[in-house]
Amino acid sequence: MNRNLYVLALGVFGITTTEFGVIGVLPELASAFRVSIEKAGWLLSIFALIVAVFGPFMLLTLSSYKRKSLLVFSLSVFVAANILSAFIPDFYLLLITRMIPAFFHPVYWSIALSVAGQTSDPAEKSRAVSIIFSGLTLATVMGVPLSTFMSDLLSWQSSFLLTAFINGVALAGVWLYLPSIQNTGTSSGKFEIKIFRNKHIWTGLFLAFFMITAMYSTYGYMADFLKNVTKMNGKQISLMLFLFGTAGIAGNRIAGKYMSRFPFQTTFVFLILLSGIHLLIGYYGSCFTPMILIVVFWGLIHSGGFLISNINVTSSTSEDSEFVNSIFTSCGNFAVTAGTLFGGFCIARYGIENIVWASITGLVLAMVLLLFKKRNRY
């Protein structure tokens, strides 16, 4: 079973590199297409918005197809879209091309998370889910910094070709090593309306939304912040993204270990520590050496956010896990979109050096909701 989970995590690595790989390349893309950094940020936010809006619909529409076939086809779309992106001369065509794989992103995520949850003991669920999320962490360790490095070393086009290669490796892994997966989720093609009557689900979703919005308000513009505030060059930014992701491996494992036993305490500590990190970024952002240490601890804490959010949502109900995970995926990507747009708004209005306050606002709202959740004893 562990082998199956790691194979699925390899696919998560590929599709997540596609979604977030542009984070480190945004300054180059903005310059190449002669658009503002806020407008370039739409390359991230439009992807997330498509996932958010169409996630549950795509899963329900394709529910009758074999799960492994859906995984293989989804990764094939990611390979093709990244190759096309490398040869597009117009910003808006690039934007449209990035929208295509976004439709299949939630299909892959929902099936992978469902397999992790359904094939493990309840006590081991957080660990199984953490294996799937290790693909996301690996994307921040290798995918995002490698994309940034390739863009700095050769061109932004080469970063898209690298991402296509990563997805190709993931496709080969899933095709060759993953056994056939039984259709265990929604097969009727109808919405499970009763899920939306569960107030526990809504509390978990709003908590996840504010947490992830806060995370991506600043992280979505990390490369631009390090370039313009910390005054780092392209290679140094690549190294910072690598350190961020490497620390995130440990952070993801720590979150998975404690979330199953102490969900409230783990979430509470996460919000406190991430708020503290953003305050340090705001205070020491222009200081080169302190920012190196801050980025490491930032990655250590940040990486557990998606896993913590997912467990808060999925533990709220015992209903159809694939559909619940598709709802979570939509919520998370709505939050990524909101965070990117809110961060872009703050940059345009207050400057890149003050972007951390966008994240701190979201974290405060998440803390209020968490305490409300605790008070009502969910």
Rank of each mutant, 00 (worst) to 15 (best):
A170N: 01
G173S: 02
Q182L: 13
V169N: 00
L176G: 05
W175D: 03
S180P: 15
T163H: 08
I166L: 11
G185K: 06
G185T: 07
V174R: 05
V169E: 07
L171Y: 06
I166M: 12
G173N: 03
L176N: 07
F160R: 05
W175H: 14
L162Q: 07
L161K: 01
E192H: 12
N167T: 01
T184Y: 13
G168D: 02
L161Y: 08
E192L: 11
S187Y: 07
I166R: 03
G168P: 09
L178W: 02
S180F: 13
L162S: 05
I181P: 08
L162R: 02
G189Y: 12
K190D: 15
S180L: 13
F191N: 12
G185M: 09
V174H: 06
N167H: 01
L162N: 06
L171A: 03
L171D: 04
A170P: 02
F160N: 06
S180D: 14
L162V: 04
T184N: 11
G185Y: 12
A164C: 08
Q182G: 13
A164R: 02
W175F: 10
V169S: 04
A172N: 03
A172Q: 00
L178H: 05
V169D: 04
G168M: 04
A170W: 01
K190V: 15
F191R: 11
L178A: 05
S187W: 07
L178M: 06
I166V: 10
A172K: 02
N167S: 02
F191A: 14
I193N: 15
A172T: 06
L178G: 00
L176V: 05
F165D: 00
L161G: 04
Q182E: 14
S188I: 07
V174D: 01
W175G: 03
N183C: 05
T186S: 11
V169T: 05
G168L: 03
W175K: 11
F160C: 03
V169H: 02
L178F: 02
G189D: 09
A170S: 10
T184F: 10
Y177H: 12
